[in-house]
Design a protein around this nucleic acid. Structure first.
Length: 272
DNA sequence: CTTTAGGCCTGACGGC
DNA sequence: TGCCGTCAGGCCTAAA
């Protein structure tokens, strides 16, 4: 489910409750996620103060002096901040109690998400060490994309979804960015020009920034930390619109499976 | 090294 | 109403 804009939206929603809060309890109801939730080590964080929280790629990192909680929402995860007395429901895997007042609750029906405890240096953790640059920073640009694409025979859509090239671009925004850039998603990554990658990098930044502004994309189950949906769905040009008319030229949007993921494009607008 | 396929799960939906 | 196949926003891992 969540791509970078949804994770960023979630972070912004929970941040005010987390920053400087003391963890007063951690309750794990169902430790079964992508990897087992380390219940005992996590509970040692009780009475610790949260010094900072941040997003890296699609991970949310909650720092304390005794370790960093790393959360990932997988395909179907969501985080909500609730008052302590809210009863738990189906797929509510764990609560992090804050100041005996609120709880940060992780719900994840499909269990592709995770909750791990990291020791410093956090950046050297296996899951973080090889990640590419953040797309919304200057560390990511067309030159990076161009360089990392040389010799690659995968489709350009797969390249921009490769977390070692650039993080946070998931299946929705990959299709959207390629549409904005006018680039056909099926093209071989290694054959695109530097100029095309300059444009593509700009479009990736644009589509992600705009999606964050709209509070993310709600298709089925994504909600912000307060339970409200994201509104970027109204701004999607191609994702999920196979058979419908292109919003720019009315040509019928096509769907195609690329690298086992459904992809959408306008055959007329995306001719490069 | 790059690339591909498999797997992890639940739930929603469409066809019969 | 129910059963079945298909599909879904991610991403690690093993194997080719």
């Amino acid at each position: 489910m969540p791509e970078l804009p949804e994770v960023e939206t979630t972070l912004r929603g929970i941040q005010p409750y987390l920053q400087d809060a003391t963890i007063t309890d951690i309750r794990v109801r169902n430790p079964s996620l992508r990897w087992p939730v380390p219940v005992r080590p996590l509970q040692k964080l009780c009475d610790e103060k949260i010094s900072a929280c941040e997003r890296r790629a699609k991970y949310i990192l909650i720092h304390t002096d005794r370790g960093t909680i790393m959360l990932h929402l997988g395909m179907s995860g969501s985080l909500r901040v609730l008052s302590v007395d809210q009863p738990a429901g189906k797929h509510d895997h764990l609560d992090i109690e804050l100041n005996q007042q609120h709880i940060l609750r992780l719900n994840d029906p499909r269990r592709f998400g995770c909750c791990l405890l990291l020791k410093p240096p956090v950046a050297e953790h296996k899951l973080l060490a090889n990640l590419g640059p953040e797309p919304l920073t200057d560390a990511f640009n067309g030159d990076i994309l161009f360089r990392r694409s040389r010799g690659r025979r995968v489709a350009v859509k797969n390249l921009i979804m490769d977390g070692q090239v650039v993080v946070g671009v998931g299946n929705i925004y990959a299709s959207e960015a390629l549409f904005l850039a006018g680039v056909r998603p099926t093209l071989t990554a290694g054959r695109l020009s530097r100029a095309r990658y300059q444009r593509l990098a700009e479009c990736i930044k644009l589509v992600l920034a705009n999606a964050i502004k709209a509070g993310g994309t709600t298709l089925n189950d994504f909600t912000q930390a307060d339970g409200s949906p994201g509104y970027f769905k109204q701004e999607l040009f191609v994702y999920g619109r196979a058979g419908e008319g292109c919003l720019r030229c009315s040509t019928t949007i096509k769907a195609k499976t690329i690298g086992q993921r459904s992809s959408f494009y306008c055959p007329a607008c995306q001719s490069f």
